[in-house]
C-alpha cells in the first residue's frame, strides 16, 4: 500500500485509528466498570472486610450489612431455574431435531426463540399479575398436599411470591438460550453415527441417550453454563416476584431476594453512604460471579472447539 495516493493514505490512517479506538473503547469501558463498582464498594468492604459475603445482617438503621441472604437467593433461584430449564430444553431440542418435520419444527423453534425477545420487565408484569395468582390457586396448594403442610420446603402461605415463582420464571427466560445451544449440539452429531444406532435396532430415545447425548455431552454442559450466566444477573422479572425480603429460608414459598433484585429495589432509597457502598459491594459480588462463569464458559467452549472443530 505504500504507493497509494496521499488522500487514501491519510484516510486509511484515520480509519484504522478510529476502528482501533473503538475496539480499545470496549477495554476502557470494561475496566471503568470494574473500577467504578470496586471503588464504590471500598467503604463497605473496608468496614466489613471479607465477612461481608458471609454475614446475613441487613440493617439500614444500625448500618450493618452483609451479602449472605442475597447471595443465597441468587444461588437458589438460579438452581431452581436450571432444574426446570435444563430438562425442558433438552426435550425441546430433541423434539425439534429428531421428531418434528420441518414444517412443524421451524415455527416451534421460532416461538421458543421469541421467548428470548420478551423483555425482563414483561416477564415481571406477567409473573406478578398473572402467574403468581395462578400458582397460589393451583400449583402451591397441590404441592403442600403432596409434601404435607409441615414440610419445610413448602412452609408458609401460598401467595405465589417467593423463590419458587422466581425460579420458574427465570427458567422460561433462560430456556431459549439453553435449548438453542442444545439444538445446535444435536444437529452437529454426524448422521452416520445416529443411523448406525438405528441400524442396530435402537429406538429414537435409545439412539439419543446412548449416542447423540454422549457424543455431544460437552456441548450440553456448555449450554448449562450459558443458562447459568443468564440467570444469575436477571433483575426485573425476579424483582417483581421474589418478594424482596432479606432472609434465609429453606421454603420454596418464602419471599427472598437476589443480588440484582436488592440493587433494583433499594438503591434509590439508600441515602446513607455506608448503605449505598454496601449495595455497590453487592454489585461487585455479582460482577465477580458473572465474570467467573464467563471465563469458565469460555475455557470450556474453547476446549470443545479444539476437540470437535469449529461450528459451535
Amino acid at each position: 500500500m505504500s504507493q497509494a495516493r496521499p488522500a487514501g493514505r491519510w484516510g486509511d490512517r484515520l480509519f484504522g485509528a478510529l476502528s482501533f479506538g473503538c475496539a480499545a473503547l470496549a477495554l476502557l469501558l470494561m475496566a471503568g466498570l470494574f473500577f467504578e463498582i470496586a471503588s464504590g464498594s471500598a467503604q463497605a468492604l473496608s468496614r466489613f472486610g471479607l465477612g461481608f459475603v458471609s454475614s446475613s445482617a441487613w440493617d439500614p438503621v444500625r448500618q450493618d450489612f452483609g451479602a449472605l441472604s442475597s447471595i443465597f437467593g441468587t444461588l437458589v433461584s438460579t438452581f431452581i431455574a436450571l432444574l426446570f430449564a435444563v430438562p425442558l430444553s433438552l426435550v425441546i431440542a430433541l423434539f425439534l431435531v429428531e421428531l418434528a418435520p420441518p414444517f412443524i419444527s421451524r415455527p416451534v423453534g421460532l416461538a421458543i426463540e421469541l421467548l428470548a425477545a420478551i423483555p425482563s420487565i414483561i416477564y415481571g408484569m406477567w409473573g406478578l399479575f398473572v402467574f403468581a395468582p395462578w400458582l397460589s390457586e393451583h400449583l402451591q396448594p397441590f404441592l403442600q398436599e403432596l409434601f404435607g403442610e409441615e414440610c419445610f420446603l413448602v412452609a408458609g402461605p401460598p401467595i405465589g411470591i417467593g423463590m419458587l415463582p422466581a425460579g420458574i420464571i427465570l427458567a422460561f427466560m433462560v430456556l431459549p438460550y439453553t435449548s438453542s445451544v442444545m439444538r445446535d449440539v444435536f444437529q452437529m452429531v454426524p448422521p452416520v453415527v445416529k443411523e448406525a444406532a438405528h441400524g442396530m435396532g435402537s429406538t429414537t430415545w435409545e439412539a439419543t441417550r446412548r449416542v447423540t447425548m454422549r457424543y455431544g455431552i460437552q456441548g450440553l454442559v456448555g449450554a448449562i453454563f450459558l443458562g447459568l450466566g443468564r440467570a444469575v444477573g436477571e433483575t426485573m422479572a425476579v424483582t417483581f416476584v421474589i418478594g424482596n425480603e432479606h432472609r434465609l429460608s429453606g421454603s420454596l414459598f418464602a419471599p427472598g431476594n437476589t443480588i440484582a433484585s436488592t440493587l433494583a429495589n433499594e438503591f434509590n432509597e439508600a441515602s446513607e453512604p455506608m448503605y449505598r457502598s454496601s449495595l455497590f459491594a453487592l454489585g461487585l459480588t455479582l460482577l465477580v460471579m458473572t465474570l467467573l462463569i464467563q471465563v469458565a464458559t469460555h475455557l470450556w467452549l474453547r476446549r470443545i472447539q479444539r476437540k470437535m472443530g469449529a461450528g459451535l
Binding site: 470494561m30 466498570l33 440484582a260 458473572t290
Partner: peptide, 8 residues
C-alpha cells in the same frame, strides 16, 4: 461485556 448483567 455482553454477559455483564445490565443492572451493573
Amino acid at each position: 461485556m455482553m454477559g455483564v448483567p445490565s443492572i451493573l
